[in-house]
Simulated assay, not measured.
Amino acid sequence: MTAPTASAACSDIEVLSARGTFEPGSLGLIVGDPVYSALRQRISGKTLSSYRVDYPADLSLTSAAQGNAELVNRVRSQAASCPNQRFILVGYSQGANVVDNSIGISSAGAVVGSPIVATIPKELEPKVSAVLLFGNPIRSIGKSVTGTYQSRTFDICAKGDPVCEQGGGDTLAHLSYRSNANEAAVFAAGKV
């Protein structure tokens, strides 16, 4: 079997975005779209493409698990088709659960969380340049990203956001992450 060759369609960096529950927008109106736009402005000299993680993003018990499997499958297939491509993983709210699970941090027990059904293979971990998490539900149960991805992770929880802050009571805080897009892009640009 011969090694796959890179095609003209391979970007230097693919931004995989897992949107929040019921979030509209191509990559996600509150986080995905503004973060991708900020990344395009901040990362120069490299080509970027985006990918919307295809999952229900609803309140069903299997939604986050479906997103978890889909994100891992996308990374595997892109790594095979585009061997030099790197990845930036973006997750907002339930989408953060999807990303958490995909990098081996279980979101089981968190709001709209699920057990891990797939993880990015160890040999592909170095291809993940940055992990950008917004309103991450695992934070409300005292968990965070640890291990190999910790230094590459930007994980923000707005003050009072009940989804990620235990005892938080400001539901509007959960909708405020658009204002953090540039900060996240600056972080990611330093990692690519």
Rank of each mutant, 00 (worst) to 15 (best):
D155H: 00
E123C: 09
L172K: 12
V117E: 07
P121T: 12
P162I: 11
N136T: 07
A158H: 00
G167W: 11
D161L: 06
I156V: 05
K127Y: 06
A158C: 00
I141P: 12
A130H: 00
K159F: 14
P162L: 12
T148R: 03
L133Q: 03
T119V: 13
A158K: 01
L133G: 00
I120V: 15
A118M: 07
F154P: 12
T146K: 01
P162W: 15
V131I: 10
I138G: 04
N136I: 04
S144R: 10
P137V: 01
Q166F: 13
G169H: 14
N136D: 14
L172T: 09
G167S: 10
G169P: 13
G147D: 08
D170P: 11
F134K: 03
V145W: 02
C164M: 10
T119H: 06
T171E: 11
K159Q: 08
C164R: 05
L132V: 01
C157A: 05
G142I: 04
E123Y: 07
K143E: 04
I116H: 01
P126K: 04
S144C: 01
C157G: 06
D155A: 02
L132P: 04
V163M: 09
V128K: 05
D161T: 02
V145Q: 02
G135N: 12
I138P: 04
G147T: 05
S151N: 15
G135P: 15
G167K: 09
P121F: 14
P162H: 14
T148L: 00
G135S: 13
G168I: 14
K122G: 13
T148I: 03
Y149G: 08
P126E: 07
G168R: 04
P137E: 08
V163E: 04
C164G: 10
V145M: 12
V131C: 03
E123K: 11
N136C: 05
V163T: 15
S140F: 06
P126S: 08
C157L: 02
Q166P: 13
C164T: 08
G169S: 12
P137Y: 09
A118Q: 11
E125K: 02
I120R: 09
F154E: 05
V131T: 07
Q150N: 13
Q150M: 09
L172W: 12
T171S: 11
P121V: 12
P126I: 01
G147H: 11
G142H: 04
D155V: 00
T171A: 13
S129T: 03
F154K: 06
V131A: 05
S129M: 04
E123P: 09
S144H: 11
D155R: 00
T119S: 12
T146E: 05
G142C: 01
D170Q: 10
D161C: 14
Q150V: 06
